[in-house]
Amino acid sequence: MSEIPTELKYASSHEWVRLESDGSVVVGITDHAQDELGDVVFVELPEVGSALDAGAEVAVVESVKAASDIYAPLTGEVLEVNPLLEDEPETVNRSPYGDGWFFRVKPADLSELEQLLDSDGYADAIA
C-alpha cells in the first residue's frame, strides 16, 4: 500500500501539493507514482520564473521503465526547483514527500487547492 500523507492535496495525475506558511506551494510526485515508475534516473524540471497553467505539462521524470510527464496542479509561477534532483534523481524514490520534491510555486489563486483531492480521494483514485 502506498503512503498517502493526510496533510497534502493530490492531483489525479499523481502530483502532491503542500501549502507552505508563506503562501507558496511545494509540488512533488506521490509514493504511488514513484513506485509505478520504478528507479528514477533523470528529472527535467521547469525554469524558475516560468508561468504554469493548471493541468499543463511542466516537467518530465525518466525511469528505467518509462518517461512520464508531470503536470502543474495549480496555476502560478515557479519560485524554486529542487537542485538535489539534478545529481540525485533517485531521491524521488527514497523520499517522494520529503527531499524528493520537484518545485515550489507562487499560486495565482489559492482557491485552486479546493479542486484537488484529499488523501481519501486520492486513495480511492488509485485503488
Rank of each mutant, 00 (worst) to 15 (best):
Y10R: 02
Y10V: 03
Y10E: 11
S12M: 02
S12I: 07
S12P: 04
S13G: 00
S13F: 07
H14Y: 04
H14D: 14
H14R: 04
E15K: 03
W16E: 06
W16L: 04
W16I: 10
W16D: 02
W16A: 05
V17Y: 07
V17C: 08
L19H: 06
L19P: 01
L19I: 12
E20Q: 14
E20K: 05
E20W: 00
E20D: 15
S21Q: 13
S21I: 07
D22S: 01
D22H: 07
G23P: 11
G23E: 09
G23A: 08
S24C: 02
V25Q: 03
V25C: 14
V26D: 00
V26H: 06
V27Q: 07
G28A: 02
G28H: 04
G28I: 06
I29C: 09
I29P: 00
T30I: 11
T30G: 01
H32D: 03
H32P: 01
A33P: 13
A33G: 10
A33M: 12
Q34K: 09
Q34F: 05
Q34A: 11
Q34H: 11
D35N: 11
D35G: 06
D35P: 00
L37N: 09
L37F: 02
L37H: 08
G38Y: 12
D39H: 13
D39I: 04
D39G: 04
D39P: 01
V40E: 13
V40D: 08
V41Y: 10
V41F: 10
F42C: 05
F42S: 08
E44V: 08
E44W: 05
E44C: 00
L45H: 02
L45W: 02
P46W: 01
E47W: 00
E47V: 11
E47N: 12
V48A: 15
V48D: 08
G49I: 05
G49S: 02
G49V: 05
G49A: 12
G49P: 05
S50N: 09
A51M: 03
A51H: 09
A51S: 14
L52Q: 07
L52Y: 08
L52T: 13
L52P: 08
D53W: 00
D53H: 08
A54G: 10
G55T: 10
G55Q: 08
G55A: 07
A56W: 05
E57I: 13
E57V: 15
E57G: 11
E57L: 05
E57P: 03
V58H: 01
V58Q: 07
A59N: 08
A59V: 10
V61S: 11
V61R: 13
E62N: 09
E62G: 13
S63E: 09
S63W: 11
S63Y: 11
S63D: 12
V64K: 06
K65F: 09
A66Q: 11
